[in-house]
Simulated assay, not measured.
Amino acid sequence: MSLLATVLWYCRQLYLCIAQLLKRWSRCLQRKFTNNQSVSAEVDLLGYCAKKWKGDTEQAKQMRKAYEELFWKHHMKYLRQVKGDNYCVLRAILFQIFSQGIPLPSWTKTTDVLKLPEKLLYSQGCNWIEQYSFGSERYTGGNTLGKLRKCLETLKNQWMEFSSIKDQYERENRCSTVFIDETLEHKLYEAIKFIMLYQVIEAYEHMNKECLPQFFNLFFMRDSSLDPLSYMMNHLNSIGDRRSLDEMEMFLLGYSLEVKITVYNLSKFNSKTFQGRYTEEPQRDCHEVSLLTEDDRHYHIPVVKI
């Protein structure tokens, strides 16, 4: 074998070795990226059901029937799995808002969301908001306002960016960069929580002056949320840490973000509560988002295809 042939052989072997290493590295990065996604790519709805609910138990049979009804009657062909922590509902709702390009709530046109913390603290005397908890991080004291402003600024900027993107495919690709960053995500969810608190404060201060949605009357009848402070301390502060949203908060979330929330509870198939709608104002031209749950704890996103 000539010297040139030997050199070429070694170069080819080196090339093959490097190509193999790059291929393995690419697969490793792809697996890591996929595993870190808090909202997965679309999977076939009935295929997902068939893998999860095998066997002949009554529960498995009921679940298969429930999934089939979603597929045939409600035109839900795909499913996005959502990371099952205590931000699960907020994550599933916000992902749909961003991926659909839904605009900011109409009330933000007359209210600067970035000034809400100072407005509540100094203009409305709600000095107790300094006891606000950021998920598992509790009672940041004097730093509360600064952290809330950063969270609200992050939410507003991201929301405006997504609503300005006209192409759905581009929006969904952009979502893959947001819903992989845990720190960024938590800022978004804490901002939504604070907006919910703002709406509770506004409703409480106008209970006798304006016609408010009926759920607020029930909201303030609970011993644990007689006023905004008790709601924050007994309910809101623990969202993202020890609990997710309760049914009353689903109404509050839809009202705050101006979306109609529909929840399909598969464990209640063939009952009146199989499909829950969390809106009291059907005449409003609101965008719709949907959730799917099998156990009232973990929520996924059903995807409609007609």
Rank of each mutant, 00 (worst) to 15 (best):
C11V: 05
S244M: 03
S225R: 02
T183D: 15
G142A: 12
L120G: 05
F33I: 10
V259S: 01
D296P: 02
K268M: 10
N157W: 04
F215K: 02
T110K: 04
K166A: 09
L229K: 07
H300L: 04
T279C: 15
E190C: 11
A50Y: 04
R171K: 14
F215H: 03
A191P: 09
K109R: 08
S176E: 15
L104S: 10
L212Y: 05
K305G: 14
L45E: 13
D112S: 14
K119Q: 08
Q62P: 01
K61A: 13
I201P: 03
L16W: 04
L90C: 09
R24S: 07
H298T: 14
L155Q: 11
L253C: 13
K52P: 01
E185Q: 11
I239D: 00
R138H: 10
L257G: 05
Y264V: 09
Q168G: 04
L3E: 10
L14I: 06
Q168A: 13
R27E: 11
A19R: 07
D167T: 05
C11W: 02
L218H: 03
L29W: 09
H75M: 10
G142I: 02
M221T: 13
K268P: 03
L104R: 08
M248Q: 10
N265G: 08
R284H: 06
V263K: 02
F194L: 08
S224I: 08
E42H: 09
Q214Y: 03
N127W: 03
L46K: 11
I180Q: 11
S290R: 02
M233N: 12
R64C: 09
E69T: 11
Y87R: 00
L266Q: 07
L45H: 05
S26E: 07
L116S: 08
M221Q: 10
R24N: 11
K51V: 14
H74W: 06
E294F: 00
L104Y: 01
W9G: 03
L3G: 02
S256V: 11
L4I: 06
E42A: 13
K32Q: 14
A19E: 12
N36T: 00
L79P: 03
Y299Q: 05
L14A: 13
K32L: 15
W128C: 14
Q158I: 15
M233E: 12
A5D: 10
P117E: 06
L121G: 02
K32E: 13
K54C: 11
K268R: 07
L145T: 14
I102Y: 06
E190R: 01
G276N: 12
T144Q: 05
R174S: 15
D223C: 02
D223L: 04
E68C: 13
I93C: 01
F162H: 07
V89C: 01
E130F: 05
T262N: 06
C211H: 08
